[in-house]
Write a protein that binds this DNA or RNA. Sequence first.
DNA 1: CATGAATGAGAATTCATTCAT
DNA 2: AATGAATGAATTCTCATTCAT
Lengths: 200, 200, 200, 200
Amino acid sequence: MPRTPQQSRSRATVDAIIEGALRCIGTSGMAGLTTKQIADKGGVSVGSIYEYFDNKEAIVDALYQRFVDDIVKMIQRETPRLLENEVEALIQAVLKNFGDLLQQNNQAYFHLAEQLLHTNTERYIAPVQDILGRFVMTYLMRHPKYLRVPNLDVMSYIMINSGIFVVIRQIAGDSGAITLEQIGHGFGRLIKHYIENERA
Amino acid sequence: MPRTPQQSRSRATVDAIIEGALRCIGTSGMAGLTTKQIADKGGVSVGSIYEYFDNKEAIVDALYQRFVDDIVKMIQRETPRLLENEVEALIQAVLKNFGDLLQQNNQAYFHLAEQLLHTNTERYIAPVQDILGRFVMTYLMRHPKYLRVPNLDVMSYIMINSGIFVVIRQIAGDSGAITLEQIGHGFGRLIKHYIENERA
Amino acid sequence: MPRTPQQSRSRATVDAIIEGALRCIGTSGMAGLTTKQIADKGGVSVGSIYEYFDNKEAIVDALYQRFVDDIVKMIQRETPRLLENEVEALIQAVLKNFGDLLQQNNQAYFHLAEQLLHTNTERYIAPVQDILGRFVMTYLMRHPKYLRVPNLDVMSYIMINSGIFVVIRQIAGDSGAITLEQIGHGFGRLIKHYIENERA
Amino acid sequence: MPRTPQQSRSRATVDAIIEGALRCIGTSGMAGLTTKQIADKGGVSVGSIYEYFDNKEAIVDALYQRFVDDIVKMIQRETPRLLENEVEALIQAVLKNFGDLLQQNNQAYFHLAEQLLHTNTERYIAPVQDILGRFVMTYLMRHPKYLRVPNLDVMSYIMINSGIFVVIRQIAGDSGAITLEQIGHGFGRLIKHYIENERA
DNA sequence: CATGAATGAGAATTCATTCAT
DNA sequence: AATGAATGAATTCTCATTCAT
């Protein structure tokens, strides 16, 4: 039913809705997210929301898409710089970039990321896995010495998911006195030792 | 206001409520957890819920307590066996045990664990951190060779949280073809190499 | 949170809610006044009630305001006529007017007045005291012979409250065979004698 | 269904219930009066309440009876003293006694009296009217000079109800700076003048 | 296209009353 | 007689969704 916006006014409305939703989430998290709130913060009417989205879930969906897009863009943008690093510094840089991204939009992305454990999130993560996979490939071609590390799939799965979760918890403030830098350093050395020792 | 159950009938009712809630969560996750559902699945009346719990949140609280208790008990029970292992096998065993626990109660614990990223869950995790910390101490006294590993606090924080999250995602079915065994193996080798290389 | 109605549709809905509430009260008193009932009798939905009122109490509040407004208007409207009367006839006329007002809206105002003894009603009564005080002033300037009556404050307090209560009881049907006319007559003579004898 | 208590244990339970209810009302008024509260404060079980009372209303009923009984007893007790007074002092004394009674039981009677405007209270008031009527008779035989006052029924109805209401409002604290003494004095002079002027 | 008033199903919570022990 | 756990109808309030204007 809802139309796909092609004209510019429509585009603006959709953006306003997304923006409104992001601001709501940044302010009060996913908990009390209502369509009325989104409409108010976005400066549109509730009716307009349903002009462009099937239901509230579709908005959240769009937010995830945008989140994922931003992650993908971030990696693409940083790739040249990242490729220069040895693996330890690489990990640290990636975690740092990811942490910074979560702080954007008044932490709206952080609140979205909090939901990542819930059902149906796989589809959002797939593109991230994709881009990361491609990045790893590129990285390996640039640093061929790492090519002979076994279990690359399992290990990158572990490291990606571990990294995401630990950074989120750190931002959530549950980490006590542990800083993002310490985490980045720890991850970096973990991986460095693994690679150096497992390389055939 | 709600009474603390001392008599056996009361005890049974409280158990029925907890059980009902666990079954609800096992069936449909935390999303659609309503007092009516809990009462129905538990075979009690809504009124009885409020005889023993201040509000719905208090029930969820009790579930978390129970979850945490079960984790603590599991570790205490397994400690003797676990102490025998070298670190690689140890990690694999712990992840395996944790994964098994999440499958209990029709995966109700899994759904609870999904909420762990949300606010106010720190208090539930504290006891787990406690028991794990104590376990690590015991383990280190038994295997003194690991004692000289630096950054024990940061690294155990990273490993504990990473392990929890990755296991949860695996159970959520988001891991593609990757198995719990592979994950355990990967984690094990990660840590093994780290320890052996960082040991002064 | 709830909007102030500016447009005509909103105005109509608010009126329908007030009207529904008045009819509920007229039918079954304050006891069984539920949001559902109000919505049904008013021909609106429960949701609409909360569009315009914070909670049920706010509706009752509005009813009191309306009641008080009507009392004030009634006195303002009748003032010219009332000023002509000697005190005995004046009292009779005022009681008569008040009694008539209570009979309006299927006695809804009567049921509201029944609540006047309860807490937090002072704020509603204040405007009535005000207008009555101003009326007395005007009356005294027109009939200066009454000016030298002592204890005007205490006596008017007594008479106003006595009058309100006795009229309410009469309408409640608890007065046996005593009529409003008899009551008006009695009050009138009481006051007449008091004034004539106490006047310095 | 509920039994009429004849044995002493039963009597004690009924008293405990009444006492519990009085204390509840004295503490928090009629608003949040629950059977559980009554049972707790009375030191009995909810079940026992229904052993002796049909329903909650029946308890409130009993409270009214007791209230009325106490008023009747008060008048009977005070009658010899009251008969000595001239009418002005009489009125003052009666209002004073009534005000004192309302203060008893931590103002529980006051809260009951607040309900007096509601439906179905006539049956409670009737005995009071009775005893007051009889008192007036006795008084008149002792002070025959008042006998020729016209409209005795209407006037005593007005004065009794006015007195009750004004005293209640005074205790409710809504009277501003006006004291019970001033009220008693005002009423006394009102009546004195009426009688002296209307006596044929 | 946009609006926002209206809707009503559904959620949490309360409490008078019952009844097995 | 007494107990108090259990009941569930009833109540207030929320919010995703619809639709007349």
